[in-house]
Design a protein around this nucleic acid. Structure first.
Lengths: 243, 243
DNA sequence: GGCTTGCGTTGACATGGGTCAAAATCGGAT
DNA sequence: ATCCGATTTTGACCCATGTCAACGCAAGCC
């Protein structure tokens, strides 16, 4: 609840070369552009760093900016009147924040253990998309992936026991990591048990108990609090929608 | 589970005039086009009708087509190994089905009490979008709305009691109906209690009990099983995330 | 009309997971 | 290395909701 920033955020303009060597380029919307087009894009981008728990924006802030995540992880969440919090998504390198038609941000976006982003003004991006239909095409692809990811989240939330949800969550994290070129197996969890709980609609104690139980049953090994090795993908997958 | 079709599906080609007078035009992707462009679109569209419970496509079918809903309601769902079902969304007039990058449909799409759609082949649509960037722009807007709707669903599923979920569901249906030009208040529910339960991650008995309870507390009036009048929007909204 | 069939409601009961509480462990700061 | 607050784990208890079961009701059909 009361997260504090361990690092101050920094912001600086980009030069064209920085875009060219950006490791997240292939994953996000910039990947569709030629070098000379990329330099147009770099002129409107600002690079920012955020420390542990630091907010990029708050629920209700005017949504004048959009972000490409270039490193780390971001948590999108909303707090409800009853004091509880729903984590709507975890976003990683290559993901885009800003698919929304609303005037203000519907979620709070916070760095989970440090993150780097490229920030654009929405108006600048609109100009880019009309100039380069390729970018709009790429954005539609990314929005489509977002829809798939949200729908997977829905299935995770709606069905099954707490242990099923946690299993499905671990498998999804592993898959996502592999998809962006990271390691598949020892799954790294940048977020706390409470974050996971608020993502899955559970109490954090329940999430903790599920980890312990999955370890006792030999499906996973908790190498450290934030590193989990999946010992039996098959069984975990069966478990995740079969119990 | 074993829904049966009360009407046979029919399919026929469109002529340009039918597109021109289509009442759903303003809501879906066709709305961005000029009359002469619309006639290009009408050449690749086929109009289809589906009866009560009839499937447009099944989970796993090759996803070679996309749909514009022109009338009625469609239920997207998946069945899990444990025999349970998750309803991923209800789609209404003006909604688009086909934001997916996968080879095969991840969901089964079925008509809820009858529906009409315009069907396009994915390949034809891809040609249209490259020819008319306006259509791609409009599709991105619609995908953005889809993301917002999926995220609302996530918040509904993750947080709160059964009664909170049902309240939020009723309010969302009412809002959606108003948004597409329908009536806001006596909310019409084309779907069964079981459909609602599978959408909200509840047992259908629980949904039924919540309706009864909300009526007893004076927040709604059940005019008939499928028609609910909201008597106190304010209280229902407070209830929906406050209890 | 009376039957059939699917859908909805209500009741009784069991249990998974929320809540409260306390101890254990981790990790950053000095 | 030590300390201190944050996070995680574990335990005990209880309630909301799932499950099982019976019944009511409305629509369609003969």
């Amino acid at each position: 609840m009361t997260k504090m920033a361990s690092t101050k955020s920094a912001s600086f303009a980009l030069d064209a070369s920085r875009c060219l060597i950006c490791s997240a380029k292939a994953l996000n919307m910039c990947g569709s552009l030629e070098p000379e087009e990329l330099s147009r894009l770099s002129q409107i981008a600002r690079c920012e760093s955020f420390g542990n728990g630091e907010a990029l924006f708050h629920e209700g802030d005017p949504a004048k900016t959009v972000y490409n995540i270039t490193d780390g992880a971001i948590r999108l969440s909303t707090s409800l009147k009853n004091g509880r919090r729903q984590v709507v998504g975890f976003l990683f390198t290559g993901d885009f924040i800003g698919f929304s038609d609303r005037e203000s941000f519907p979620w709070t976006g916070e760095a989970v253990r440090g993150a780097k982003v490229c920030r654009f003004s929405r108006a600048d991006l609109a100009r880019i998309t009309t100039e380069f239909p390729k970018v709009e095409h790429r954005l539609l692809e990314m929005a489509t992936a977002d829809i798939a990811s949200a729908q997977d989240h829905i299935v995770m939330l709606g069905q099954g026991s707490a242990a099923e949800k946690v299993s499905a969550f671990l498998l999804a994290l592993s898959r996502k990591s592999a998809k962006r070129g990271g390691i598949e197996n020892p799954v790294h969890l940048p977020m706390t048990r409470e974050d996971i709980a608020d993502y899955l609609g559970l109490a954090f104690e329940t999430v903790s108990r599920c980890f312990t139980r999955l370890e006792n049953e030999g499906l996973i090994a908790i190498e450290s609090t934030r590193v989990v090795r999946i010992k039996d993908f098959e069984a975990l997958a069966d478990f995740s929608d079969d119990e």
